[in-house]
Each structure stands twice: as C-alpha cells, then as structure tokens.
C-alpha cells in the first residue's frame, strides 16, 4: 500500500451530477482494490494557465488515497480513456513525508 494524490482537470461544461458520477467511478476502482480514500477536495472551476484541448477553464478535483501499487496501472488506463478528464496528475505522497523528516 502506498499513498497517492491525484489531481484532475475536468471538462467545465459538466453538471454536478455527472461530475459526481465520474468521481464515483474512480473511487469505486480504488475501494474495490481494497484501497482507501482519505480526502476529496473539489476546487471548482478555475482558469487554465494555457489552453488544453481547446478548453480555457477546467474543474479541479484533488483526491488523496492509499492503494496497492499494482492497481495504479489499471487506474491510469481508465483515466486516460475517460474523455471528460482533460488532464490528470498522479503523485506519490510517501516521498514527501520522508522529505519532511529530513529537514
């Protein structure tokens, strides 16, 4: 088990319901693999610093979770296929803790 953080930039035209169903889809993947979601943070609509796929705005959502590392490949595959996600960023959280101890 490792802890991760994933940030999504999602299509801004999406309604609240669709957004929730999209997030549930991701969360289900994690929980089904015996993972645990520790935090969900919806930032809401934000302007993109530059245009991505002709979008100027995006809905930002941050998910913190811990899951077995074997699941990550499958998780990334599903997210890449998901057209409503403009872009995502997956980062490892474990390393930052170690870094914190050093300094």
């Amino acid at each position: 088990m490792r802890s991760y953080e994933i940030m999504f930039a999602i299509n801004p035209q999406l309604e609240d319901k669709e957004l929730d169903s999209l997030l549930d889809k991701v969360k289900k993947l994690i929980t089904e693999a015996k993972g645990e979601i520790t935090k969900t943070n919806k930032w809401g609509k934000r302007k993109l610093a530059y245009e991505i796929k002709d979008f100027t705005d995006a809905i930002y959502v941050v998910l913190n979770f811990s899951v077995d590392e074997k699941i990550i490949a499958e998780l990334e595959r599903v997210i890449k296929l998901e057209e409503r996600v403009i872009r995502y960023l997956l980062t490892l959280k474990d390393k930052e803790k170690i870094q914190n101890k050093d300094s």
Binding site: M7, R46, A49, Y50, I52, A58, L89
Partner: peptide
C-alpha cells in the same frame, strides 16, 4: 513543473 503540467502555471506567459 508539476503545476505547469496540470495547467495551474504557464509554460510561457
């Protein structure tokens, strides 16, 4: 670099 990748910061303004 991470912030640039997800569109929070510009590569070139």
């Amino acid at each position: 670099k991470r912030a640039r990748e997800i569109g929070l910061l510009p590569y070139v303004a």
